[in-house]
């Protein structure tokens, strides 16, 4: 464990807790894409299949349980909670996210480190995580503005992957044979997807005005 990975995990934890807190406290999920949340639940479900078979550390297992629990809770709130579900903007959140999953699955069947059931699903979860934010970014473009908590959620989510890139660089230079091209490229693509959002987030923060994404 290094400081970059710890910062990344804490930022990731903060992003899901910020979102869960928002939805639980104000009983609203306005501006949040259910499609992105469903994709994240699938990302964690396919990423942590080995939670019962391979034990790394208490920290690792605890964080996996938190990520699984929070992502499925957010989906539950948005789909089934009597008050929250009414605030979900289903006509605007129309991204065909199943069309994202198929290419990720095909790519995982083609490019992976080992051709085993767990490894292919794990690789699928990496590719899916890279694009999972797209429905949320599309929703923001449509609604043309963004409330603070959703903005913080995306900002933290992008920051977590940025910290992970620093972690991969650190591990590459400090651990012999630590080479995971698939993880690195998927993580880089994911972070680049956030880059333009970060740019507009920074502009709105600098000019101290409401974040408006270009049409």
């Amino acid at each position: 464990m290094n400081i970059f990975r710890l910062a990344g995990d804490m930022t990731h934890l903060a992003s899901v807790l910020v979102l869960l807190l928002k939805i639980h406290t104000i009983k609203s999920c306005a501006g949040v894409s259910l499609k992105t949340q469903e994709l994240y639940a699938i990302v964690f479900a396919t990423r942590y299949l080995d939670i019962l078979t391979s034990f790394v550390s208490i920290y690792n297992t605890l964080m996996k349980l938190i990520f699984l629990g929070s992502s499925f809770s957010i989906v539950w709130y948005m789909k089934y909670h009597k008050t929250v579900r009414r605030t979900y903007d289903r006509d605007q959140d129309t991204f065909r996210h199943w069309f994202l999953m198929l290419p990720c699955l095909l790519l995982a069947l083609l490019i992976h480190e080992k051709f085993t059931f767990f490894e292919v699903l794990w690789t699928f979860s990496l590719y899916l995580e890279a694009v999972a934010i797209l429905p949320q970014l599309v929703l923001l473009q449509r609604t043309r503005n963004i409330d603070n908590l959703t903005g913080q959620y995306i900002f933290l989510l992008g920051g977590y992957r940025g910290f992970y890139i620093l972690n991969w660089i650190y591990r590459y230079f400090t651990e012999p044979h630590y080479v995971h091209w698939i993880t690195w490229i998927a993580g880089l693509v994911q972070t680049l997807l956030y880059a333009d959002f970060f740019y507009y987030y920074f502009l709105s923060w600098k000019n101290n005005k409401k974040l408006q994404l270009p049409a």
Binding site: R5, D9, H12, S54, E113, Y178
Partner: peptide, 10 residues
């Protein structure tokens, strides 16, 4: 070895 490619990241 086995642990080198053990998935220790979240």
């Amino acid at each position: 070895g086995a642990d080198s490619n053990k998935k220790d990241e979240l």
